[in-house]
């Protein structure tokens, strides 16, 4: 064997061995268990903190409001659709305040006139003209929208 190869071959073999050793120690523990990924990452994603409690959770304390809400057209709404994420609120005895929206823009998100919305799906008003300047909730109770307030 030429002297060059006598020197190079061992060098390459050492290089490859080093690589294999590194590969062994650097590969994360659960990698490849179920596929080409870190299997434990699934459990890590599952541990993400939830923010939304769900309507059932709200119902545990506010069953009176939920009962009203579920009577008619707003039955499909979840409390958190308008009030925002409420899990912290629910799990800490109401210590964390939830959002209580009162501005017209909130109602307008669904109810402002827009050709893209199906009129069958939703009641729409011209938000610029309809009692402009007044709050929607001055007249409408969002929990019982079919009733007009005084």
């Amino acid at each position: 064997m030429p002297p060059q190869l006598k020197r190079l071959l061992p060098a390459f073999i050492i290089f490859i061995l080093l690589f294999l050793i590194l590969k062994h120690f650097l590969t994360p523990e659960t990698f490849g268990e179920k596929g080409h990924y870190r299997y434990s990452s699934i459990a890590e994603v599952q541990q993400t903190q939830m923010k939304y409690a769900g309507k059932d959770k709200c119902n545990e304390c506010h069953d009176d409001i939920v009962e009203n809400l579920d009577m008619d057209v707003h039955a499909g709404l979840s409390c958190e659709t308008c009030h925002g994420p409420g899990l912290m609120h629910a799990e800490n005895d109401g210590e964390y305040e939830i959002i209580i929206p009162s501005e017209r823009e909130m109602c307008a998100l669904c109810h402002s006139m827009n050709v893209s919305r199906s009129t069958r799906e939703i009641v729409q008003v011209n938000i610029l003209e309809h009692n402009s300047g007044k709050k929607c909730i001055d007249c409408h109770n969002p929990h019982m929208p079919w009733e007009l307030k005084e």
Binding site: V45, T48, M50, G54, K55, G76, L77, S78, T81
Partner: peptide
């Protein structure tokens, strides 16, 4: 995934009014 694997629904479905 953190919700559906605990039997809850997704946040987007939870709040969808329709």
């Amino acid at each position: 995934y953190h919700r559906i694997s605990k039997g809850k629904t997704t946040a987007c479905i939870e709040v969808c009014p329709t």
